[in-house]
Design a protein around this nucleic acid. Sequence first.
DNA 1: CACTTACTGATACCAGGTGTCAACAATCCG
DNA 2: CGGATTGTTGACACCTGGTATCAGTAAGTG
Lengths: 166, 166
Amino acid sequence: MMKHATLGNAAPKLPVLTEQNVESILVQHGYRLTRPRLAVISAALRHRHPFTAEQLVADLGTANGGAIGRATIYRTLEILAAVDVLTRLIQADGHPAYICDSPGHRHHIVCSGCGTAVAFTFCPIEELAPTLARDTAFEIHDHLLEVFGVCPSCQDSKRLPPQAHA
Amino acid sequence: MMKHATLGNAAPKLPVLTEQNVESILVQHGYRLTRPRLAVISAALRHRHPFTAEQLVADLGTANGGAIGRATIYRTLEILAAVDVLTRLIQADGHPAYICDSPGHRHHIVCSGCGTAVAFTFCPIEELAPTLARDTAFEIHDHLLEVFGVCPSCQDSKRLPPQAHA
DNA sequence: CACTTACTGATACCAGGTGTCAACAATCCG
DNA sequence: CGGATTGTTGACACCTGGTATCAGTAAGTG
């Protein structure tokens, strides 16, 4: 068994999501393109690692140079998740974070060291669901799956002589 | 492929966890058996569905008849999870809840209607992990998996004539 | 350009949870 | 059994992450 020699796309060739992509998706869904939303989109896309909502608040919030309200940032993240260009994931410490992705069902493997997340499209629940539904008599509607581990570069830094400067 | 005709134990024959079990497990791990802890254990075991920490606070907290501090309740839940008799799971609405289980790796399928959770021991990540590790070069350490659906009895109530009294 | 309506930001609030610390009480030891 | 020791407790303050409200603002439309 276990014929899935590849995982859909574990690391390579994820289509890049641009600001233009996101903007047109928003318009297609009937959302207005406002200055605060554009700023949130731009900031979210700049992050290559998962980021927390409060990080965006720190970047863009009225407390700092920015002029975007906390509520607006949360609302915009919610919209981006609703149109499927943003994934909300749970980090190893249990706290939520967000990451921009092209639309489509995917899960993430998240590094407990640096937070880097790699998406994969293979979903083991799809094949488990029928058995599970039969055995439990539940109707299955959704699931939550995150994998936690250590990324290659954090593995390397751990292997270094422990005489680190800190 | 897909030879798992059963899921370990999806619904039947879960060994029952008693107060005595939990108490001896705690002692084995070097924890003291205090009056507040016994009360939390007893309250937690009384719940047959997942419960939130704040529910226990409502049941046992100093605000009500009880005399157990909020912090103590949270700390005790943490201990019970550490010795593996309590699972912290995430409900469909994203909020955490707790449920008592005999020790062992398991996941839950949680009803979005009534909150009922059914445990299963089959873990699809175990077989996925090697492929994932190879494809991403991550060291895999842990994972989070919850399945959401509707339990048989909530399916029934939805099927009833929609002239509900509410 | 004016108007409709979605959107914004300030503020207050909530849930869920953690840190601190003096008082307390399980257990150990003799 | 009677302390002493040390893990544990409860009150309290505080924190993160997020939501509700609502008057004011600005996108998009004709």
